[in-house]
Computed example of a mutant assay.
Amino acid sequence: MDYLYAFLIGGIICVIGQILMDVTKLTAPRILVIFVVAGAILTGLGLYEPLVKFAKNGATVPLPGFGYSLAKGAMDGAKDGFLGAITGGIKNTAAGVTAAVVFGYFVALIFSPKSKR
């Protein structure tokens, strides 16, 4: 059942993103930012944690999950003061950001992308 819940919740998040792209004039980068900020705000309000416990990776892998990790790290680090709040978010998301940069670099090397003209 865990796989089903992860699939359903992750799919619902993706459907929301697709609906936003189809119905509004928002660009993809703006929708990505909305998702990250929404994940952080919902975490701060205590609403995203139950979703993570229910759907596990179905809620943590999509972009709201990045906002969740960022906010969760900042809230945990805030116990050590202001500097802890800043470094806590960075510590929680460092692995994901590093993986995205490294894999993006390798893909760029393999496929030699060209800029649009």
Score class of each variant (00 low, 15 high):
6 A>R: 06
6 A>E: 03
6 A>G: 10
7 F>N: 12
8 L>E: 13
8 L>A: 12
8 L>S: 11
8 L>G: 07
10 G>E: 04
11 G>Y: 00
11 G>E: 03
12 I>K: 00
12 I>C: 09
12 I>F: 12
14 C>D: 13
15 V>T: 15
16 I>G: 02
17 G>N: 09
18 Q>K: 15
20 L>Y: 04
21 M>K: 15
21 M>E: 12
21 M>T: 15
22 D>A: 15
22 D>C: 12
22 D>N: 15
23 V>R: 15
24 T>W: 07
25 K>L: 14
25 K>D: 15
28 A>R: 14
28 A>V: 15
29 P>M: 08
30 R>G: 11
31 I>E: 03
31 I>G: 04
34 I>Q: 02
35 F>I: 03
36 V>S: 02
36 V>Q: 05
37 V>L: 09
37 V>Y: 00
37 V>D: 07
39 G>K: 08
40 A>V: 00
40 A>N: 05
41 I>R: 00
41 I>S: 07
41 I>M: 08
42 L>S: 07
43 T>L: 05
45 L>K: 14
46 G>A: 08
47 L>T: 06
47 L>I: 09
47 L>Q: 08
47 L>Y: 10
47 L>V: 07
48 Y>A: 05
48 Y>K: 03
49 E>C: 00
49 E>N: 11
49 E>T: 13
50 P>I: 05
50 P>G: 07
52 V>K: 06
54 F>M: 09
54 F>A: 00
54 F>W: 14
54 F>P: 03
55 A>Y: 04
55 A>P: 00
55 A>E: 06
56 K>W: 13
57 N>W: 11
58 G>K: 05
59 A>H: 04
60 T>A: 08
60 T>I: 10
61 V>G: 07
61 V>P: 00
63 L>N: 06
65 G>P: 00
65 G>H: 00
66 F>E: 00
66 F>G: 02
66 F>S: 07
68 Y>G: 01
71 A>T: 00
71 A>C: 09
72 K>M: 14
73 G>R: 01
74 A>E: 04
74 A>W: 04
75 M>H: 09
77 G>D: 02
77 G>W: 00
78 A>T: 05
79 K>C: 02
79 K>P: 03
80 D>E: 10
81 G>S: 03
82 F>E: 02
82 F>P: 06
82 F>I: 06
82 F>A: 07
82 F>C: 03
84 G>S: 00
85 A>Y: 01
87 T>V: 14
87 T>P: 02
87 T>W: 14
90 I>K: 09
91 K>A: 14
91 K>M: 11
91 K>F: 09
92 N>I: 08
93 T>I: 09
93 T>Y: 05
93 T>K: 06
94 A>K: 13
95 A>P: 08
96 G>A: 10
98 T>N: 10
99 A>F: 14
100 A>H: 10
101 V>Y: 11
101 V>K: 10
101 V>L: 14
101 V>H: 09
102 V>R: 12
102 V>Q: 08
104 G>K: 11
104 G>N: 04
105 Y>Q: 10
105 Y>W: 13
105 Y>K: 12
105 Y>M: 13
107 V>T: 14
107 V>C: 12
108 A>G: 10
109 L>F: 11
109 L>R: 13
111 F>C: 10
111 F>T: 11
111 F>D: 01
112 S>M: 13
113 P>A: 05
113 P>R: 09
113 P>L: 07
115 S>R: 15
115 S>Q: 14
116 K>C: 12
117 R>G: 14
117 R>E: 11
117 R>T: 13
